[in-house]
């Protein structure tokens, strides 16, 4: 299967340490060293993979980045406003069509979007379908609990459907944008959109040095791993090691920031950001904008017609 070749094994076994609920983390029995290294490696692979996809020919790849950013934001807002499941499903189907037209393997795209957040959302909204949380017309009675009847409500089911469909559509739109736009073009698009150049400079530099710092961290962890092959993680020494690694990394990061500043000043930087990019809107961009406008107008129109 061609998609299997395109979607490397890390995508299917994706367990980036950046979990959707951020700080709670995943509570799984695994060595913290291993998890940190895997997380770091995944970020790198994902970035390289995105860069490869973005350079392939396809529908979205041919649209000017700034135009893409604006239309994607408009579509995101339309998605957020919609309150009917049927419209959301139609919008989601549209993102699938665009993905295919942009040369993204369908199955890969679906997996990339649904793992992990929409599925996670689906799981956490299950309790919200009960009348305990979302009152309404009970369609599936489940019995009684402490003298109260418990059941799944029509409102609860609709609500769960709405949120999962909306989350999936929103993520699809963002993934479509970032997978078909090289990072530097995206930054350039932000600049043309009057996002302060200084902010774009910071953003670009931050992204660039994530990889450098990840490498530093991975090296430190690998060194530790080679020394602690036999005994399982000892929690308190593990914590001390994490703190030392994070602390040492900050020391390196700060030294690096001074060096980078020197390198910038040496080449004439005085606090103003300048950039080389210039954009030209061509016919296909106009067509794309029109198509998106029609989609958004239709979405909002149908949404209004169906009422609340």
């Amino acid at each position: 299967m061609s998609t299997a070749a395109l979607a490397p094994e890390w995508l299917t076994a994706r367990e980036i340490a950046l979990c959707p609920c951020g700080c709670i983390g995943k509570r799984r029995k695994a060595n913290f060293v291993e998890k940190t290294i895997i997380g770091a490696a995944n970020v790198l692979k994902q970035a390289m993979f995105s860069a490869d996809v973005a350079s392939q020919p396809g529908l979205l790849q041919r649209i000017q980045p700034a135009v893409k950013v604006v239309t994607m934001l408009a579509l995101l807002m339309a998605t957020a406003v919609v309150r009917h499941l049927s419209i959301l499903v139609a919008l989601y189907a549209a993102t699938l069509a665009i993905a295919v037209a942009s040369g993204l393997p369908l199955w890969f795209f679906v997996k990339r979007v649904w793992l992990f957040i929409p599925i996670f959302t689906g799981v956490i909204v299950v309790p919200a379908t009960l009348n305990l949380i979302t009152p309404g017309r009970v369609v599936i009675p489940l019995g009684t609990w402490f003298g109260h009847s418990v059941g799944v409500t029509a409102q609860g089911l609709t609500s769960a459907g709405l949120i999962v469909a909306r989350v999936a559509t929103s993520i699809s739109l963002v993934v479509l944008l970032t997978l078909t736009t090289p990072w530097n073009k995206l930054l350039a698009a932000l600049r043309t959109m009057r996002v302060p150049k200084m902010f774009v400079l910071v953003l670009g530099m931050a992204y660039r040095y994530i990889f450098y710092l990840l490498e530093t961290v991975t090296d430190m962890y690998t060194a530790r791993k080679s020394r602690t092959a036999n005994h399982r993680n000892n929690t308190s020494s593990g914590r001390a090691f994490v703190a030392a690694t994070a602390g040492a990394t900050f020391g390196k990061a700060h030294a690096l920031s001074i060096e980078v500043h020197d390198a910038m000043v040496a080449r004439g930087y005085t606090g103003n950001a300048r950039s080389i990019d210039h954009f030209q809107i061509v016919k296909r961009d106009v067509v794309w904008v029109l198509a998106c406008s029609v989609t958004i107008a239709a979405t909002l129109g149908v949404n209004y017609a169906l009422g609340s």
Binding site: M205, Y207, R208, L256, E259, A263
Partner: peptide, 16 residues
Amino acid sequence: VGFVFQNSDAQVFSPT
């Protein structure tokens, strides 16, 4: 005056 730093990682700071 141009300066080639020892640490290329510090000197190559742009996205591309």
